Amino acid sequence: MKPSSLLKAAVFIIGMSAFIQVYSVQAVLPVLMADLRATEVQAGLAVGAAVLGVALMSPFMGMLSDAFGRKIFITASLLYLSLPTALLAFSADIHQMIALRFLQGLAVPGITVVLIAYIGEEFETGDVARLMAVYVSGTVFGGFMGRFLLGYLSEWAGWRGAFGVMAAVSLACALFVWQQLPKSQHFTAKPDFQTAFATLKSHVRNRYVVSASLLGMCVLCSLVGCFTYINLHLAGPPYRLNSSELADIFTVYLIGMVITPLSARLMARFGSVKTIVLAVCLSMAGVAITLSAPLAAVVVGLVLMSSGVFVTQAATINYIAAHVKQGRSLASGLYYMAYYSGGTIGALLCGLAYTGGQWSGVVYTLLAVQAAALLVAVKGMKAV
């Protein structure tokens, strides 16, 4: 089939819907800490719990959809996502919120992993590349819009009312996707779990998969740690930003919609590994700049930091594609498991760092994590 405008819109909305909820609470962490009497570490876990859910489910969702189908998993996951999102509005304490955030995260791989398989099966090579670009743009936009929307809604309707609106958005997106996403025409059920687990076993011994996974873990550890605790830093003196102003800060995330396509040119010229080294160094420079006092300098630092992360992620995925010839979906699942586990680690580790040393403690922790990423890239990855 050829992708229509409505299909492209559905793919964009799927990408957006997958990530509109994952990081949204970052914009309202100071408010949640006050209302739910949460510590910095507990507030960070409210972010990390969703990421942990994504990590745990990612390796298995591909196998399940291989056995049972594509569209049903995508639409069911979108519908399910609206339920814990709505229940967040009724959270009595931070522990309930953390549990519901974990349930949100469990839905995401049923959207992301399965959509990638769906696109690969249903479209020709040229159309696959175009639809994947649409999907990636949707994920970046969703990551921004979740923080932006929840931040502004919480100013107008309180954070509980804001979560109610966010649930309605997820439900509306699910209904649109159900109507516009065509049924699979080329899907063949492959419920061979024994072969899948044998492939999984070989991947965990593959240095290319292991190196890429470790790098991904470091990457999201630094991104989640940075964008979670910068909110607490900017909500305090001398900045004292409110929820909507913190939401504005996340417009730097949109740089990913520009940077991700440009990363292909860097990889074509320098190769994946050199591109990763350059991108991590850029990210480290950005983190260091956030120690500056002027708000404008902090924003510039965040732009550089996030740009480095987006390029690193694109180059790492390209590295996996170049080195893994069999069981690529499972290899991608392992990568995403490590990647999102890194996000949970970042939320916890940087929470402890913030408690002990405020924002400067977080910065030094992030630089150490990124130094580890450089070590993995230089020592563990073969240039392509």
Rank of each mutant, 00 (worst) to 15 (best):
S4L: 10
L7D: 07
F12E: 09
I13P: 02
I14Y: 01
M16H: 04
S24L: 09
P30D: 06
V31C: 03
V31P: 02
M33E: 15
A34T: 15
V41T: 15
Q42F: 02
Q42H: 06
A43F: 02
L45A: 11
L45Q: 08
V47K: 00
G48L: 08
A50M: 08
V51E: 08
L52R: 06
P59R: 10
F60W: 12
G62S: 06
G62Q: 01
L64G: 09
K71H: 04
I72E: 05
Y80A: 15
L81V: 10
L87P: 01
S91F: 01
Q96C: 08
R101A: 06
V113Q: 04
V114D: 00
V114L: 05
I116M: 12
E121I: 12
F123I: 11
F123P: 05
A129F: 01
M132F: 07
G138T: 08
T139L: 03
V140T: 13
F141R: 01
F144D: 06
G146W: 00
E155W: 04
R160D: 06
G164C: 09
V165S: 02
V165H: 00
A172N: 06
F176Q: 07
W178R: 15
Q179T: 12
Q179A: 13
S184G: 07
Q185N: 11
H186Y: 03
P191W: 03
P191M: 08
F197M: 13
T199M: 11
S202T: 13
H203S: 06
V210F: 05
S211W: 01
S211A: 15
L214C: 14
M217Q: 07
S222T: 15
V224E: 01
C226L: 14
L232M: 10
P237W: 02
P237M: 11
R240T: 13
R240L: 14
N242G: 14
S243P: 03
E245P: 04
L246T: 13
A247P: 05
T251L: 15
L254H: 10
I259Q: 04
A264C: 06
R265H: 09
K274C: 12
T275D: 01
I276Q: 04
V287A: 14
T290H: 01
P294R: 13
L295W: 02
L295M: 10
V299E: 00
A314Q: 09
V324A: 05
K325I: 13
K325F: 10
R328L: 14
R328D: 05
S329Y: 02
G333W: 02
L334Q: 09
Y335N: 11
G343D: 08
T344N: 03
C350H: 00
L352R: 10
S360C: 09
V362Q: 00
T365Y: 02
L366V: 12
A368K: 12
A372E: 11
V376D: 07
V376I: 14
K379A: 14
V384C: 12
V384W: 05
